[in-house]
Every structure is written in C-alpha cells, then in structure tokens.
Amino acid sequence: MNTTRRETQAPSVTTDREIVISRVIDAPRELVFEAFTDVRHLSQWWGPEGFTTTTRSFEFRTGSEWDFVMHGPDGTDYSEWITWTEIVPPERIAMLHGEYRGDPNAFESVLTFEPDGEATRIEMLTVFPTPELRDEAIEKHGAIEGGQQTLGNLAAYVAEIVRAGIVRKGAED
C-alpha cells in the first residue's frame, strides 16, 4: 500500500512544502534499513523505474556524503548529492538532497522504518524550501510517482535478497 500524505497526524507547519510517501515492504526492518547503508545495495535499486545510478563517492555516517549520477532512461544524466544529517539504526535516516553541495534548492528528507509484523513500513517525508519548489518537483519531475517507484524498486530488491537467503539456507540443509 502506498500513501502520499500523512493520514493520521495533524497538519504540520510545512504541509504546503511536503511530499510524504509510504509503503509496506515484505522484509524485516533491519534488512530494509541495511539497503540504505551500503552503496552496493543502493546502486541496485535507487531511483525511479528505468534509472540507473553511478556513485562517485559514498560514506554512510552522519555528516558524510553520497555523490552520484542518476542516468535516466532517455540518456539524461542527473548529478545528485546527499549528506546524511541523522542516522538512527534501524529506525531513521535524515538527509539533505540536492544537485550539488551548497545547492540552495536542496530538500530535506526523513525516512522512518517501522516494524509492521514481519514486514516494514517505510515512510519518506520530504520537505522542500518553498511550496513552489515542491510543486515543481511534483509537476515537472514526477516526484510522487518517482518516489513510489523508488520504494517499489527497494521492495523488489529486498524481496530478492530474502528469496536468495531462503534458497541458500535450504541448499545447505
């Protein structure tokens, strides 16, 4: 199930600048969280459908950065930059995301990972500097659909890891 807004919370002061996307992923929270901690995982699923990612540099710790290029299905390259502002394993990741370090249009994202039985509910809250930048991200760049596709790619990736783990375990018996 995907949602694009917080359904159970009172509106925040940033509501007109937010995009909220959530999804239940059929995998343990620790595995879903781990998919964000290692570049070899991120490069397998990050981005909307049809995109690939090339990492220039990556270090997953608070204050460090991920510098990468997303390659669109039409051949367009998009320079991207993320700095990790908070990491609370396996519960929360906060980041600042722009096209480059110091980007005045960079947006903040907070990902939360909540157990949902044997699955994980991930919520991605993105807050843009202005309502206009949020609207542009939605209308020009398809941010809601792209975010839903990205979480779908994550779900498919961790499902494959879970399946491979079961096969390996069964093969060892």
Rank of each mutant, 00 (worst) to 15 (best):
W84N: 05
R6M: 12
N153Q: 15
D116N: 09
V162I: 11
S12M: 02
E30R: 06
A143T: 06
H71Q: 12
E80A: 10
E34W: 09
V20H: 08
Y157E: 07
T120C: 06
V110C: 05
F51S: 04
V110M: 03
E99Q: 11
I87S: 03
A155D: 01
R6I: 14
I82Q: 04
F58H: 01
E59A: 15
T112L: 02
M124R: 09
I82M: 05
T52W: 00
E160K: 15
V110F: 04
L151G: 03
A27C: 03
A137Q: 06
Y100A: 10
W81M: 00
A155L: 00
E80N: 14
A156L: 06
T83H: 07
A10M: 09
V69E: 12
I25Q: 01
T54S: 08
P89E: 02
R17I: 04
Q44M: 14
N153H: 15
F107Q: 04
Q149I: 11
T83A: 02
G98P: 04
S22G: 09
R121S: 06
N2R: 14
D173C: 14
E80H: 10
L111C: 12
T8D: 12
L133N: 05
T53H: 00
W81L: 02
L151R: 00
S12E: 06
T15G: 09
I25K: 00
E160C: 11
Y78C: 03
R121K: 11
R17L: 00
M1A: 10
I138R: 01
E145W: 08
P131I: 04
R163S: 12
F128R: 08
L154K: 08
N2I: 12
T4F: 08
I144S: 08
E123H: 10
L42E: 02
M1Q: 10
S43L: 07
D135G: 08
I122E: 01
I138A: 07
V32H: 04
V20G: 11
A106R: 03
E59S: 14
Q44P: 13
W45V: 04
E86V: 00
V127I: 12
T120Y: 01
F33L: 05
R56L: 15
S64Y: 08
Y78A: 07
I82R: 02
A171L: 12
G98V: 05
P90I: 06
N2P: 11
T37G: 10
L125R: 15
D103A: 04
I161R: 03
G47H: 02
G165Y: 01
V110A: 05
D116Q: 12
H141T: 07
G63W: 05
E136Y: 06
W46C: 02
